[in-house]
């Protein structure tokens, strides 16, 4: 069960967009922006409030890669795997990150909730390939080594 504050926040967001089916996506986006993920309980709550069937809301939320029911880490690392990045070996970068953080295809976030590693299709920075973003900040021309260094740098911020 989520804390009541989550529902209050959801109410506030719902009021901003109006109780109609068309508000579903913007509401989900705002909730995700607030909590860095979309809590399943809130999806159920929002669906009921705006008069959308829960299965339908779930359908929309799972259709878009961007929505996540899993809580994400403090640092969200998006490794670009668009064509330009892919041919410039972006996958070894991602694999190095995953190995270093002990992540798998099923687990995208570290147990200490510090890092989330995801793949995205194109960040629009093909000239800087291979590239990745950390919380929307672009890091160009990555290599597996640079990626590991980046992690220690980010870990350093923790202290």
């Amino acid at each position: 069960m989520l804390d009541q504050s989550y529902y209050n926040k959801a109410d506030e967001i719902i009021e901003g967009y109006g109780r109609k089916a068309a508000s579903l996506i913007p509401i989900m986006q705002d909730i995700q922006a607030e909590y860095r993920y979309l809590p399943g309980e809130l999806l159920t709550y929002v669906a009921k409030q705006i008069g959308v069937k829960e299965a339908k809301a779930f359908s929309v939320a799972t259709f878009y890669e961007n929505f996540s029911f899993e809580p994400k880490g403090k640092f969200i690392i998006k490794v670009c795997d668009g064509t330009a990045c892919h041919v410039r070996k972006s996958m070894p970068v991602k694999e190095a990150l995953m190995k270093e953080l002990g992540l798998t295809h099923k687990q995208h976030t570290t147990d200490d909730m510090m890092f989330t590693v995801e793949t995205v299709s194109c960040l629009g920075a093909c000239g800087l390939a291979p590239t990745l973003t950390v919380n929307d900040e672009v890091h160009p021309k990555m290599t597996p080594e640079k990626a590991i260094d980046l992690l220690s740098e980010l870990r350093g911020e923790k202290v």
Partner: peptide, 18 residues
Amino acid sequence: GALGFAYRGTEAMVMPEF
């Protein structure tokens, strides 16, 4: 509305919410 589509592309399935 007990059933809906979930996920997309080759992952797409029909299922109830969650």
